[in-house]
C-alpha cells in the first residue's frame, strides 16, 4: 500500500515536502458528465508508456505520446525514470497500468458507452505542474475533438 509511512524514510520525507509545496491549479468550471452508459472513455496515463518507435521520455518531460486503442503491448516500452516502483506487475498484465481490456469489457457489457480509439501517455514525477498546462490542455482538446466524454487518469 502507499501510505507514506510505508516508504523509505527519505522518500516519505521527500513526498511530504512535494505535497506541501504543491498548489492547486485553476480549476475549470465544474463538468456534469453524461451518464456512464453513454460515455466514451479514454485513458490518460503518467507511466511514461510509449511505442518502441516513439522518442522516449526524458526526465522532466512535458510532452506526451499517443497510444492507439488497438495497441499491441509487445510494441510498448516504459521510459519512466523513477525507481520507486517496479515494472513486474505491468509485465505480467498491462491492464494494471493501462486497463484497456477492462474498459472494453465494460463497454461490451453496457456499463460504459464506449472506448476511445486514442489514449495518451505522459511522464510522471513532474515537479512543476504548471509546465504541463499546454500539453494537458492540448490533450483535452484532442479528446474533445474525438468526442471523448471522460478521461480516466491513471498514475503509476
Amino acid at each position: 500500500m502507499v501510505r507514506l509511512s510505508d516508504l523509505h524514510e527519505a522518500e516519505a520525507t521527500h513526498m511530504r515536502a512535494r505535497a506541501k509545496a504543491m498548489q492547486p491549479v485553476d480549476a475549470a468550471p465544474w463538468i456534469t458528465p453524461k451518464a456512464l452508459v453513454n460515455a466514451k472513455i479514454a485513458i490518460v496515463s503518467t507511466a511514461g508508456l510509449h511505442r518502441r518507435s516513439d522518442t522516449p521520455f526524458n526526465p522532466g518531460a512535458v510532452d506526451y505520446r499517443l497510444l492507439p486503442g488497438d495497441v499491441d503491448f509487445a510494441d510498448v516500452v516504459v521510459s519512466h525514470i523513477s525507481t520507486n516502483f517496479d515494472r513486474s506487475a505491468f509485465q505480467q498484465d498491462p491492464n494494471i497500468w493501462f486497463p484497456l481490456d477492462r474498459l472494453r469489457e465494460m463497454a461490451a457489457d453496457g456499463e460504459i458507452g464506449g472506448v476511445s480509439n486514442w489514449h495518451y501517455s505522459f511522464m510522471g514525477a513532474q515537479p512543476n505542474h504548471q509546465a504541463l498546462a499546454a500539453a494537458g490542455e492540448e490533450v483535452g482538446r484532442l479528446l474533445a475533438n474525438d468526442e471523448v466524454d471522460v478521461a480516466l487518469m491513471v498514475p503509476v
Binding site: 492547486p24 491549479v25 485553476d26 480549476a27 475549470a28 463538468i31 458528465p33 490518460v44 503518467t46 505522459f122 505542474h129 504548471q130 504541463l132 498546462a133 500539453a135 494537458g136 490542455e137 490533450v139 483535452g140 482538446r141 479528446l143 474533445a144 471523448v148 466524454d149 471522460v150 478521461a151 487518469m153
Partner: peptide, 12 residues
C-alpha cells in the same frame, strides 16, 4: 493538475 488542465476543454 493534468486532470484540471484536461477539464478546461470540457472533458470530465
Amino acid at each position: 493538475a493534468l486532470a484540471n488542465f484536461i477539464e478546461r476543454a470540457g472533458v470530465a
